[in-house]
Amino acid sequence: MVKLVLLHKADSIYEDEPDVVYDFPRSYLKAVEAAVGDWIVYYEPVKAGPRGYFAVAKIDRVIPKPGVEGRFLAMIAPGSFLPFDREVPRLMQGRPMEAALTEPDGSPKKGGAVQLAVRRLPEADFARIVNRGLPQELEQIEATRYDPQPAELAEGTQTFERPVLERLTRRPYRDVAFRRKVREAYGHRCAMSGLMLRNGGGRPEVQAAHIRPVESQGSDSVRNGLALSGTLHWMFDRGLVSVADDCETILVSHNKVPGDVVGRLLAPDGKLVLPEDPRNAPNPENLRWHRENVFGRGMPDGPTPWGGAG
């Protein structure tokens, strides 16, 4: 197995969905097949946008692309995709992050490997890029973001050093990374109410909801997330609200949710507040999955956030 850099351009002729599938031509087949079961780093080239290295994922298998001669699909292992907390530029202090793109004097190479859409990535380069994009101390950064000394972090506590791959598969770390990216994408505003609420310390009250849960093979992509208030997150997970196939109209299970509750909780126009960057908009397939598998499935037992039993 080998690690790779995979070039991704949103407006390309190749139909990539980075957390699901990578579309590529036959010329890269041998290289991608060698990476099955290992990790890759996604890279956006300079001419396509400013992101640079922006996510990691693991390749599960490679299959021919149905109906397209000479094209193949690298299927991404469910639950492996994770966007970087901070995107990593191709150059740091004028020196490329990849050794293969570096001249002996440290300057960037031109042409050749630089033009490849699929590049081998040595372990050291992989670790260096991931450590910049997903810092070791991310959980501590988040815990102290609005409270310099939260109760759960005793004075003098040091971040436990975890290997890169352990970090990438550790659920608490992934939850923090997902929450930060989703809330940032929506400007810390609830996608269904349109409200941006903060507590007395400035901490945003909005939560990050998975549209398709991780346990149902949902990913940690921002496109599988919605920023929601605590009550709407509860309602969304229990199928009381969803989003229509136009990807913006909020659906409500009216026989289970009182009308006055709808009026208090949802934006007046009944539309989803979408991220400013369209690349972060909810994936229509994830929304379809929620409508078909969660929405309207039944009222949960017990008390509801608006009072009374379900």
Results as ranks from 00 to 15, higher is better:
Val182Tyr: 03
Leu287Tyr: 04
Met235Trp: 01
Pro83Gly: 10
Asp269Tyr: 06
Gly79Pro: 00
Ile250Met: 10
Gly310Asp: 10
Ala127Phe: 04
Val294His: 01
Asp11Leu: 11
Trp39Val: 04
Val130Arg: 01
Ser253Phe: 09
Gly52Asp: 01
Glu166Lys: 14
Leu116Asn: 07
Ala55Gly: 02
Pro25Asn: 08
Glu139Asn: 09
Tyr42Glu: 04
Arg183Trp: 05
Asn199Ile: 06
Asp246Tyr: 12
Pro89Asn: 03
Met196Val: 05
Arg238Thr: 04
Leu6Ala: 03
Val41Met: 11
Pro83Leu: 05
Arg264Thr: 06
Arg174His: 06
Val41Gln: 05
His233Lys: 13
Glu205Ile: 14
Ser221Gln: 05
Arg128Cys: 04
Val20Pro: 01
Lys3Phe: 10
Leu228Ala: 04
Tyr186Trp: 14
Ala34Met: 11
Leu116Thr: 00
Ile141Ser: 01
Ile141Ala: 09
Glu215Thr: 08
Ala208Trp: 01
Gly37Asp: 03
Asp260Asn: 15
Val262Glu: 09
Gly67Pro: 12
Trp289Glu: 00
Glu98Arg: 09
Gly70Trp: 09
Glu123Gly: 14
Pro300Val: 02
His254Asp: 08
Ser242Ala: 13
Val257Phe: 07
Ala57Arg: 00
Lys110Asp: 09
Pro45Gln: 03
Ser27Arg: 15
His254Ser: 12
Phe54Asp: 03
Pro278Phe: 05
Pro45Asp: 05
Thr144Ile: 02
Ile129Met: 05
Glu33Asn: 12
Gly79Met: 05
Val88Gln: 01
Gly270Pro: 01
